[in-house]
Design a binder for these strands. Sequence first.
DNA 1: CAAACTAATATGTCGGAGTAATATAAAGGA
DNA 2: TCCTTTATATTACTCCGACATATTAGTTTG
Lengths: 275, 275
Amino acid sequence: MLKVVRKDGGGEVHAMSDSMTNGDAPPGAATDIGSEEAAPKVKRGTGRRLHGAIAHKLGAAIVSGEYRPGDTLSGEVAFSEALDVSRSAYREAVQVLSAKGLVESRPKTGTRVLPRHRWNLLDPDVLAWAFSGEPDIQFVRSLFELRSIVEPAAARLAAERRDKADLKEMRDALGAMRRHTLATDAGRAADRDFHNAVLAATRNDALVVLTASIGAAVAWTTQFKQRSRALPRNPVPDHVKVYDAIAAGDVEGAGEAMRLLVDLALEDTRSAMKG
Amino acid sequence: MLKVVRKDGGGEVHAMSDSMTNGDAPPGAATDIGSEEAAPKVKRGTGRRLHGAIAHKLGAAIVSGEYRPGDTLSGEVAFSEALDVSRSAYREAVQVLSAKGLVESRPKTGTRVLPRHRWNLLDPDVLAWAFSGEPDIQFVRSLFELRSIVEPAAARLAAERRDKADLKEMRDALGAMRRHTLATDAGRAADRDFHNAVLAATRNDALVVLTASIGAAVAWTTQFKQRSRALPRNPVPDHVKVYDAIAAGDVEGAGEAMRLLVDLALEDTRSAMKG
DNA sequence: CAAACTAATATGTCGGAGTAATATAAAGGA
DNA sequence: TCCTTTATATTACTCCGACATATTAGTTTG
């Protein structure tokens, strides 16, 4: 982890290893003789690239509030040396964060964390970073609220525009949900497939992308929910009601059924988070 | 632009020079007889960085369909040389595109354009790129449809949760809209301010971010609309109705008034696009 | 006191060298 | 014949060191 030091006004985030708490020691200084540096090596999974790992690390630190808006990261050279990576890799990571609106880099000024309203909170990666730690309850509430707005409307559109192929997709997903439960990966995948099928039936790309992002985030909370206790309620009947209404072309019924489904999911997650 | 050559199966995009449409060719190198590389120098505005300009160029080419999903860009060295920039700048640009889900880079395979459903269509930059050329009518329709779903719901929430400060913001924006018209930049800014004030009153960050993206895109279409002809209708009264309902705490009325507002805007844009 | 100029500093850009990963082709075994 | 394993070539990935550029802060000058 990286120590945070804030100056008056615009703070500055100094990148240094936790072990060296003295504030002025240059990271590369030969203070320790053996290669004893507890170098905060940025490890990456097999598939992930180095700059991706750095972006994940920094992004998670930013969305979790460890680096606060207005803070400026210490210079490229210092930070990259502290992370024990090349300047190129660090820069590419910063470009990613900049692309997602988390930071802004300018000459002389340095790289500073942007205010929260500039963040692309609906970006899948940003959501993943937000949920990699302890997600902000208020933000989770916002997400569910948005979902409760969008998904019923999507169900209404789907009831208008679905064709036979769409209905088959939903039936297949429903069958998979019945076979596996929500406690398994396959079951959760089937749940996502069902919702994706509904979205696809709306013929609205913007809706598809948006709900894909939200759905991914909600999946995290669902998994979180499962961690705490077994799900007491069988979710399949509620899904079937949605399917029936969409298949029948019942616009109002589809919207209402989906609204019920989302509300119940919210209720489950809310109670699980309190416990 | 860069010429596109597709092989059988997975196509490949070769980066090669052609006559740039923007007249920024250096006078000295204008007529290069021998080496006829009319180097497609990527020029950037004052504030924009080089890799940002490259990202804009490539991103616009991708979302406009010039590079199609499945195509693989020619290698880093070839492409960066064709663009007459360093590999670092090119790579950082690709990282940006990768962060937005437009491309994916893997060793041996190269960087290839991802299928459309992987794109972050709600990313502000991606939207800007999409609207920098001729926007897809179908996608614009999707965007308006999403807006017609989200904004009325936002108005309902705002009617529940607004406080005096929110109402003051809306009144100020309304006043600015009255003073300037929608034909001026200031007027359009006031329009955005009003909608942003409504969004802020919902106390929902996800809603704010989402509608900020959509609003920016819609602003482009509004400008496009203005280009074709003068707006025949005065938009202020409709906005006032929304404000009155929100101020009165009339949830249903606010949603209905906003729905009317969005529908009218859609109607205007639709007729303007046909003409 | 204000405007213009100078200097310091951090990001931006560059080109090259070497490493790691992976798809394709080749070789081997069932 | 088909599948598995190995080898190889191509490509992105990472690192490095240098220079260019932009922006701020301080200094000088009117």
